[in-house]
């Protein structure tokens, strides 16, 4: 039997995909966990950020920092488009609009008419060139087999986790400031906050923008070592993100980060284990069934988690005593 999947699964601990989802989940925690904004289109923010980054980098040849700024601007514009009509309405409307908007983005970028620009359904390759040009690490192989990293792998991992650290600290600081208090107050009852003289609409918009920008930056980290694929930003991605924040604790800063690590390690491990069980005919499943089965396992695990530990791994137990 081949057990290399075990170290490879633990490679997910550091992988850019984990980083990308950690950042996007942190953004979703700002929306949903802290601000009570039911955003079902975080994948849309990721997608917009990814496309703004990749298009400016590949098609216009922007330097890395400028492309990064473009990704942020894209997320801000997207937040305004979604927020202006819906943030004055009840929370449910935002969720409907966001889930639809994320799908609109995913289908729009694949239309053949704008394919020269967006790469159609093939997506965009090579957006990492400008980023790799900044890499100070000498070429070579780093790490212990089978976990070997190239210089560019190592570069994105270091920068990615650096970004998680900085942005995590930023969100942590914001949430313990008076600004964060207003945001949490809005989650509890926005009319009460309004009656205390706070411009609720402006605060909700700020939270939507902040979380959206985190999603866009997450997408940038995730696409740099691979390529931009429109199908990676479907509704499934949003639900992965919700799984991650519920797993880690939606009203914490570390929760989404730890949640993302656990999610990807467990998903990878379960895939490896199932693969061994299937190829050795220990369980009566075909290799075709193997893929969906692991998501069934993830789903069951999430249900058990929500039933027995609704506050997530890092959330405070006493918060759930009063949940309605």
């Amino acid at each position: 039997m081949d057990f290399t999947f075990i170290p490879l699964a633990f490679g997910q601990l550091l992988s850019p995909q984990t980083i990308g989802f950690a950042l996007a989940a942190l953004g979703l925690a700002v929306h949903f966990g802290f601000g009570g904004l039911l955003n079902f289109g975080q994948a849309g923010f990721m997608s917009v950020g990814g496309y703004f980054f990749a298009i400016t980098a590949v098609k216009f040849g922007f330097p890395f920092w400028l492309s990064l700024v473009a990704a942020i601007i894209g997320a801000v514009i997207f937040a305004f488009i979604l927020g202006i009509p819906t943030l004055r309405l009840r929370a449910d409307y935002l969720s409907i609009v966001t889930i639809a908007a994320a799908e609109i983005v995913r289908y729009t970028v694949q239309t053949p008419q704008i394919a020269p620009f967006t790469g159609g359904s093939d997506g965009i390759n090579g957006s990492s060139a400008a980023f790799d040009a900044l890499n100070p690490i000498p070429p070579g192989r780093y790490g212990i087999a089978p976990l070997l990293y190239s210089a560019s792998d190592l570069w994105i991992i270091i920068c990615g986790w650096g970004a998680v650290l900085v942005l995590g600290l930023l969100v942590w600081q914001l949430m313990r400031s008076p600004w964060g208090r207003v945001i949490k107050g809005i989650r509890e009852d926005e009319d009460a906050v309004r009656s205390l003289g706070k411009n609720v609409y402006a605060y909700k918009m700020q939270a939507l923008i902040l979380g959206g920008v985190l999603g866009a930056l997450g997408a940038v980290v995730a696409i740099i070592p691979t390529s931009l694929q429109p199908e990676n930003f479907g509704t499934q991605t949003t639900f992965f993100l919700f799984t991650i924040i519920l797993l880690g604790g939606a009203t914490t800063v570390l929760g989404p980060i730890i949640g993302s690590i656990i999610f990807w390690v467990v998903l990878s491990l379960s895939d490896g284990i199932l693969s061994i069980l299937v190829t050795n005919h220990i369980v009566p499943l075909s290799t075709v069934q193997q893929g969906p089965i692991r998501f069934i396992i993830v789903g069951v695990a999430l249900m058990l988690l929500v039933i027995f530990r609704p506050q997530g791994i890092l959330g405070k137990k006493r918060e759930t005593y009063f949940s309605v």
Binding site: R181, K184, A192
Partner: peptide
Amino acid sequence: KSLALLSVMENMRL
């Protein structure tokens, strides 16, 4: 309209 999951002190500061 008390803000349920904020502490009493945080309610006041708000």
